[in-house]
Design a protein around this nucleic acid. Sequence first.
DNA 1: ATCTTAATTTCGGCA
DNA 2: TGCCGAAGTTAAGAT
Lengths: 231, 231
Amino acid sequence: MRLVVAQCSVDYAGRLSAHLPAARRLLMLKADGSLLVHSDGGSYKPLNWMSPPCSFETIEPDEAQASVGVTEVWKVTQRKTGDALIVRIFEVFSDESYDLGVDPGLTKDGVEAHLQELLAAQVSVLGDGHMLVRREYQTPIGPVDLLVRDATGASVAVEIKRRGEIDGVEQLTRYLELLNRDPLLAPVQGVFAAQEIKPQARTLAEDRGIRCVVLDYDELRGVDVGHTRLF
Amino acid sequence: MRLVVAQCSVDYAGRLSAHLPAARRLLMLKADGSLLVHSDGGSYKPLNWMSPPCSFETIEPDEAQASVGVTEVWKVTQRKTGDALIVRIFEVFSDESYDLGVDPGLTKDGVEAHLQELLAAQVSVLGDGHMLVRREYQTPIGPVDLLVRDATGASVAVEIKRRGEIDGVEQLTRYLELLNRDPLLAPVQGVFAAQEIKPQARTLAEDRGIRCVVLDYDELRGVDVGHTRLF
DNA sequence: ATCTTAATTTCGGCA
DNA sequence: TGCCGAAGTTAAGAT
């Protein structure tokens, strides 16, 4: 990894056009040729970048550029899409390279799959007497997160999301349409379960007779969590 | 901005849990206290991070940590959400700070809003005799991108996307359902316009009687563009 | 390889 | 400020 702190301007031409006027920035050049242009604020997204696979080359500035103070020009291009990133460097404050090796990678815990697992183990959260039929119940248009039977034995299709938005309601609606054609299952009730449900999604869901259930992750995980604390 | 290259392990506890085993990485500490952990590959997304606003503190390693070689512990916390990132440092290879100042920011050109603007000015692209009624025609469930009348005077609702996927078709379907309840507008024809339309989206749209139109950005922009070339 | 879906999404716009 | 939708989304999993 090569880290360059420099006064520079940046232009991107590809799926859109973008321009960064000259300023002091960090240029991060990764081993795969990709380039990130970071400022000293904002979130993790760079001001501009080029994703791998891409090729890096350094160009001598032409006379016009040199006359306005450009000492070096970087050109990073993506072969496939034709996207190009041009960095014009006016002054370099630091230029260091490091060998970081390959990263062993991240392990995660607590995403949607985990929510599904927890809810499957406690479908009674959805209502007294509910029983799990199957997780990932297969249909021709994709799997329903949970298929459940309520206390009366009626079928319930559950769509689980971390954040419940309109997309999820549409998805569940398509499943319900299909499941309700099956005489062995129909009538199938829909339940939209999420840690957080957006008002628009709730409105749409209820308008379609789909019940909304807000999930409490900590509660699902159990009171006596005993999960490792970091500090 | 402080750049530290170090052998370190990272743990995140917040909306989910995540762990990075010890390896050589770049730690980017921004002026707002936010932290990015980058490896020497992948795209612009860090392996792990903490978004602002957050606070940074350094902790002395306890005996157990010191005994396995931890020389320093960083703790970055977000007040609001309670998220915490813990970086355990084993060895520092470089530690440099730079004053980058505030970035003037990015200017963009060529996104969806621009497509809508261009198409609004040339609705005849949708068919001979088409006339624009309104851009961003308001409905109770959100604005329709373009409301148009065709050569016969019939209403046409246009949904514009950069990339046309199923979501967009669903969105347009909801609008059409609503607009067709209005006797002053009905019957309203739907047009799904995008630079690129995914096969599944096209199938769904056509199945619902929605016409698909592929937009050519360069063509909409006009032949004599005269846009600045980068190289 | 292509497509679908989630994301600690981030980011901008508008009410 | 909160909500909603787009993004040069990126990234992971399934087909």
